[in-house]
Write a protein that binds this DNA or RNA. Structure first.
Lengths: 146, 146
DNA sequence: TATAATGATACCATATCTGTATCATTTGTC
DNA sequence: GACAAATGATACAGATATGGTATCATTATA
């Protein structure tokens, strides 16, 4: 079971790259070479982010993509819903009339509770959180070999 | 995103059916007619449960399947791992060397924490819990229209 | 021996995931 | 204006997972 698919993953990386450093406009070509993501796939992803209003784009020479939303307003759960569709961790159990518990299905209740927790956790993660280098835990690693 | 796939779902229902009531040996034909699950698919699932030691089987006329493990020893997470493979909600983010955070990826840490929670919750659900009609919460619903 | 059951296994249809390929459009530079 | 560099739109394709079917072998009972 995967929680995060590859396109969501790539979208996260691309957004981090665009929003980190002082870049304003970043071309897909630059991201391909830096992030090692297949070019046509990345382009497709960037176009989606553009359509969703998270990125703006400029065509032509020197063009590319830039953030149109600050990183503390982009939540992981939103990206997941864009690329992976809405959450519904169960859905399967009541679909079939044969389910012996129907509306009182205790399994559904428990799965629902888990789902709510997962969503709330994912909603607490923003791109801004992923931009912090490793700051929060001071001195966690002595040798910084980056 | 689905947390529980259909084969796991069917397995749960079949196990509940087998373990509820006083049945000892239940044929796949009986379960097909009661649970409305496609016959060949259910048979395949039952064979898996048999191989995994959760069910025992007897061939021939009057044969079928019976529980070989008590319902309070069958955990939801085990069924999910049988039919859906092991959990690894992220895995995607470190696979690629290009990940800008590598070992210190804060996203990975957060996803890991979510994963641990989900697993622990799923590990707390046993088939036995699903057999209780609606007992635990006394008087929760007055009109029992079953 | 006929029948009712499971065991084993191969196959198949569909959807999703992970891309690829192509052409059109816009924009800046010469 | 021509050319090149960028994105926009869109269709296609291969791999994998999901959900299900089909077939034949084996076992047990009457």
């Amino acid at each position: 079971m995967k929680l995060i698919t590859r396109d969501t993953d790539y979208a996260i990386r691309a957004l981090c790259y665009i929003m980190k450093g002082g870049h304003k406009v970043v071309s897909s070509a630059e991201m391909v070479s830096k992030l090692h993501i297949p070019r046509p796939f990345l382009r497709k992803i960037l176009q989606v982010l553009n359509k969703k209003g998270i990125l703006g784009s400029t065509k032509g020479l020197g063009g590319g993509f830039e953030a149109s939303v600050p990183p503390d307003r982009i939540f992981l759960v939103d990206l997941m819903e864009i690329f992976q569709g809405p959450f519904s961790l169960n859905e399967c159990l009541l679909r079939n009339l044969a389910c012996p518990h129907k509306k009182n299905c205790s399994l559904k209740k428990k799965i629902d509770a888990i789902e709510q927790y997962v969503i709330s956790q994912l909603r607490s993660i923003r791109i801004a959180d992923l931009l912090k280098k490793r700051g929060s835990r001071r001195g966690k690693k002595k040798n910084n070999q980056n």
